[in-house]
């Protein structure tokens, strides 16, 4: 008990008191040299430990499950525009998609279900096993995603300009070297392909509502999921994407109604946002 209290206190202190070092990895030119990897060990450890219940719809990943209802349409409509009468159950057929930081495969399976050839990568061996296991057990899913335990910068070595779409949903806030991360994500993308990110914004509102309240008071999100100084803002994201030869097409605000477990697109990007960009030719 005392241990838990101590742990909690530490998290509180870390999250609340830490002054945000204006994303060190983004601004500092030395960052890439000192940390030439996107992995942050304690983040991986944290996720690997909370995985028992990954596929429980009412478990710790509840919000991620319900988030599919808005991120699947975002990715689908970003990659395919189709007249209303000609819609099919598999709109993403023949589209190669990379799900970076796929975790237990919640989004990967949802995208595979509408026809996409999904590759899910994650740095945690444990999570990749869970994702693999779940998709094998899911008899209804015929078009199974492929899972690989790797990082995106390693994956780039043999998949240069390979994918039609790259998705990193709720991932970049756990990544150490954000510049390398985005560069690698864009690297695996075909010219003309589209890249999607969703992530919390670095604002006081997120710090208070998204971290303190939802992790420590309401327990919607497992404790220690997010760290304020790891978050990025829409401006920083746009900047990094534009610098990597991408054209930012849209930025939406996201809102999670935890009472109804329902996500919606909103105008305000104060809490979370989704960003879509196209890689230029």
């Amino acid at each position: 008990m005392a241990q838990i209290r101590k742990l909690m206190k530490n998290h509180w202190l870390k999250n609340v008191i830490d002054t945000p070092v204006l994303s060190k990895s983004i601004t500092s030119a030395n960052a890439a040299k000192t940390e030439n990897s996107t992995i942050k060990e304690d983040e991986i450890k944290m996720f690997s430990n909370q995985n028992e219940d990954w596929w429980n719809l009412n478990g710790p990943a509840k919000a991620l499950h319900s988030m599919n209802a808005i991120r699947v349409p975002l990715i689908r409509d970003g990659l395919v525009q189709c007249p209303y009468e000609d819609r099919t159950p598999t709109p993403l057929k023949d589209k190669k998609i990379l799900d970076v930081g796929c975790g237990g495969g919640i989004l990967s399976e949802a995208l595979a279900k509408i026809g996409a050839e999904v590759t899910g990568i994650d740095a945690s061996r444990n999570l990749i096993d869970i994702a693999q296991e779940h998709c094998q057990e899911n008899i209804k899913l015929i078009n199974k995603p492929k899972y690989v335990c790797t990082t995106v910068e390693e994956h780039l070595n043999d998949h240069n300009e390979y994918y039609d779409g790259v998705v990193a949903s709720e991932v970049i806030e756990h990544v150490a070297n954000k510049e390398l991360f985005i560069k690698s994500c864009v690297g695996v993308l075909k010219p003309g392909g589209r890249i999607f990110f969703t992530t919390p914004n670095r604002t006081r509102a997120t710090q208070i509502l998204g971290i303190c309240i939802s992790e420590y008071v309401l327990n919607i999100v497992p404790k220690g999921t997010h760290h304020y100084d790891m978050l990025v803002t829409p401006n920083e994201m746009s900047f990094l994407l534009e610098r990597n030869n991408c054209h930012v097409e849209l930025i939406y605000g996201l809102f999670y109604n935890f009472l109804q477990n329902r996500w919606s697109f909103v105008n305000s990007q104060m809490l979370l946002f989704a960003i879509q960009a196209q890689k230029l030719e």
């Binding site: 209802a69 699947v72 819609r87 159950p89 329902r262």
Partner: peptide, 12 residues
């Protein structure tokens, strides 16, 4: 629901 890859009986 189908276009988004959900079951037709999905509660949402």
């Amino acid at each position: 629901a189908i276009y988004t890859g959900y079951e037709i009986t999905h509660h949402s």
